[in-house]
Computed example of a mutant assay.
Amino acid sequence: MASVIYTDDVADPRLDDFRDLTTADRRPDRPGGRGLVIAEGTVVVRRLLASPYPVRALLGVRRRVEELAGDLADVSVPAYVPSAETMARVVGFHLNRGVLAVADRAPRPSVADLAAGARVLAVLEGVGDHENLGALFRNAAALGVDGVLLGPGCSDPLYRRSVRVSMGHVLRVPFTTVDDWPGGLGTLREHGFRLAALTPRADAVSVRTAARTPGPVALLLGSEGHGLSEA
């Protein structure tokens, strides 16, 4: 069971995973970033707790932590409970959702792992906006997509903003990167996938028509600007 720990010490070193998120934001490619996965709000924290990502700790006002009591019953992590004012000073901004959780990253599957047994995969190229990426994962979950492959130019789906916009679905829909682009897509063909590139062109085959073709399909989606590359 989670250990509930009350503290109002802004300098408490046990809260360092949550400190100054507006500055470091825990992205591994930013100064001070550590690559931690950060969930905001009870809905997203619940999805993090149910995910394969190893949870390190929670930070939240008393009411929000109490709302999560059932979810924390089988989780052996500390749950730090400060006042709302102390929490805002630690995090660096006022958090309306009232609770955060941090976790370490989990190993990613291979492209072959994702392809095995999947019916529908989304393959992204150049999706650089974190909010757009989060929205894509949320839609993938709603539409029953089995996994997401990230090609070149894609943002980090575990960046805090992406996790928030996805409503935590980036923690549920498995994903991996395609390091060999576009050669790595051959792995999908080896698993029997048809590759279908989405386009707004008027003469394109409709998604509804394409979906009637039997067998697994990989839907290719390009960047917000020029779309898919010609490779």
Rank of each mutant, 00 (worst) to 15 (best):
Ile5Gly: 06
Val10Asp: 09
Ala11Lys: 14
Asp20His: 14
Thr23Val: 14
Thr23Leu: 11
Asp29Arg: 13
Arg30Asp: 02
Gly32Pro: 00
Gly32His: 04
Arg34Ile: 03
Leu36Glu: 06
Leu36Asp: 07
Ala39Val: 04
Ala39Lys: 06
Glu40Gly: 06
Val43Met: 12
Val43Ala: 13
Val44Asn: 10
Val55Glu: 04
Val55Arg: 03
Ala57Gly: 00
Gly60Pro: 02
Ala69Lys: 15
Ala73Arg: 14
Asp74Gln: 08
Val75Trp: 01
Pro78Leu: 07
Pro82Val: 09
Thr86Val: 15
Met87Leu: 14
Met87Trp: 04
Ala88Trp: 01
Ala88Pro: 05
Ala88Cys: 08
Gly92His: 05
Gly92Tyr: 01
Leu95Pro: 00
Asn96Ala: 14
Val99Thr: 03
Leu100Arg: 09
Leu100Glu: 03
Ala101Gln: 02
Asp104Thr: 10
Ala106Asn: 07
Pro107Glu: 11
Arg108Glu: 15
Arg108Cys: 03
Arg108Thr: 13
Pro109Thr: 06
Ser110Met: 08
Ser110Arg: 09
Ala115Arg: 05
Ala116Pro: 02
Gly117Val: 09
Ala118Met: 11
Val120Cys: 05
Leu121Trp: 01
Leu121His: 01
Leu121Gln: 02
Val123His: 04
Val123Thr: 05
Glu125Gln: 15
Val127Thr: 01
Gly128Cys: 06
Glu131Thr: 13
Gly134His: 00
Gly134Val: 02
Arg138Leu: 08
Arg138Glu: 07
Asn139Phe: 02
Ala141Val: 06
Ala141Ser: 12
Ala142Ile: 09
Val145Trp: 04
Gly151Ala: 04
Pro152His: 03
Ser155Pro: 00
Asp156Cys: 10
Leu158Ser: 00
Leu158Cys: 08
Tyr159Met: 09
Tyr159Asp: 13
Arg160Ile: 03
Arg161Leu: 14
Val165Trp: 00
Gly168Glu: 02
His169Arg: 14
Val170Leu: 11
Arg172Ile: 03
Asp179Cys: 05
Trp181Lys: 07
Pro182Leu: 10
Leu188Ser: 07
Gly192Pro: 06
Phe193Val: 12
Arg194Ala: 15
Arg194Trp: 09
Arg194Asp: 13
Ala196Thr: 11
Ala196Asp: 05
Arg201Asp: 15
Ala202Pro: 01
Ala204Asn: 04
Ala204Asp: 10
Ala211Ser: 15
Ala211His: 13
Arg212Leu: 15
Thr213His: 12
Leu219Arg: 02
Leu219Trp: 15
Leu220Arg: 00
Leu220Ala: 05
Gly222Phe: 00
Ser229Ile: 07
Ala231Arg: 14
